[in-house]
Amino acid sequence: MKKGLTRGLVTAGVALFAVAALAACGSKTSDKKSEDKTIDELKISFVPSRNPDDIAVATKPMASLLQDELKKQGYTVKKVDVTVGTNFEAVGEALASGAADVGYGVPGSTYALYKDDVNVILTATRAGLNKDSSDAKDWNDGKATEPTDKQATSYRSILVTGPSEKGQALAKKVNAGEKLTWNDLKDANWGLSSTTSAAGYVYPSLWLNDNFKHTVTDLAHTVTIDSYGSGLARLASGQIDVLPMYADARRDFADAWTSTYGQKESIWAETNVIGVTPAIYNDGILVSKESKIMTPEFQKALKAAIKDMGTTEDGKKVLAVYSHKGYKDAKESDYKSEFAAEKLSQKNAK
């Protein structure tokens, strides 16, 4: 056999071997990509900003809805585990440890506390309200706070008093156009949410600091509430005088005020706003940096799936428990004011 022919046969053999090797490699890559598109379990933890039982019931259909939407994004998720955290910090801790993959409806203040352990992927939008004044007495016309067609990415915390004698005295002063003093507030009975709750703790503390050079830690009488529902029950019964809450909380519990809490008059007649905080950026959807499934590709698919889910009728029912109307992409810098607020709050708490 001639040398040229021998060399040609060897070259051809090498080329065929290379093609076969590439084909085999490509097959393995394709198989791995397919495997990566299957998620055994996605663990989602909701914050208990409303009655935990109500949240659990409302969000139960989310598992199948999200599985369907993720399927459209090319991911097969075998199981979606939906739970409600015992408090705001419990959700943050679960994300930080990797025990939860996704934190849902997480306030900016909780995000600020755990920002080294999580990424924010979406921010909720809510219907704007027909009351948004910084002047407390503007909220006290006895009429319901109503949603508008305008979508908002921020909300207020309002300091609400109830039918107790002290609560009525504080409201009377505010509605007369008089300024409250620290002495007016320090001995009242306050109901406060967990320390990372933006509307129920952090921003009310900053409001006290801005107006009276004090924080919630200086108040003489405080109790910690596990949800706004239980807090409003205490407010209705007179156990507490002041309850900080998100701006449309009274609307969410208007029926319960008379049917569950046993009040004769409406919540709009028996409660008053005595303080309004600056705007707070809306709740976020966070993902754990410790999660083994939260690759950049899956995060992208999850964002698209949640946004698409929010456009369906069944999805809207799930979102309604938090008054969410939809979602927009979010980044860490969106919450810089929340980070500053949390930093100041932590400093003042020392």
Rank of each mutant, 00 (worst) to 15 (best):
V118S: 05
D36A: 13
V77N: 06
V84S: 05
L42P: 03
I39P: 09
K131F: 07
K79T: 06
D135F: 03
K71F: 07
D53C: 02
Y111I: 05
N130L: 07
K32A: 14
T83G: 10
Y75W: 14
P48F: 08
R50T: 05
A96N: 04
L65N: 02
V82G: 01
Y75V: 11
D68T: 14
Q73W: 05
S134P: 01
S45L: 12
K137I: 09
T125N: 08
D101N: 06
G98R: 05
R126T: 01
T83D: 10
V77Q: 00
A90R: 01
A58D: 00
L129P: 11
V118C: 08
V91Q: 03
L66W: 04
R126W: 09
T86H: 11
L65A: 02
D40N: 14
K79G: 03
L65G: 00
K60Y: 15
N51S: 13
D31N: 14
P107D: 00
K60W: 14
D138C: 09
S133F: 07
L70E: 01
N130E: 02
L113A: 12
K72L: 01
D135P: 05
G74D: 06
L122E: 09
L66M: 06
E89L: 08
G26F: 10
S134R: 02
D117H: 11
V102K: 02
N130P: 01
A63P: 07
Q67N: 01
V120Y: 03
D31E: 15
K131Q: 06
A136H: 12
I55L: 13
P52D: 09
K131C: 07
K37W: 05
N140F: 05
V106P: 09
V102T: 02
T83I: 07
N140A: 10
A58K: 10
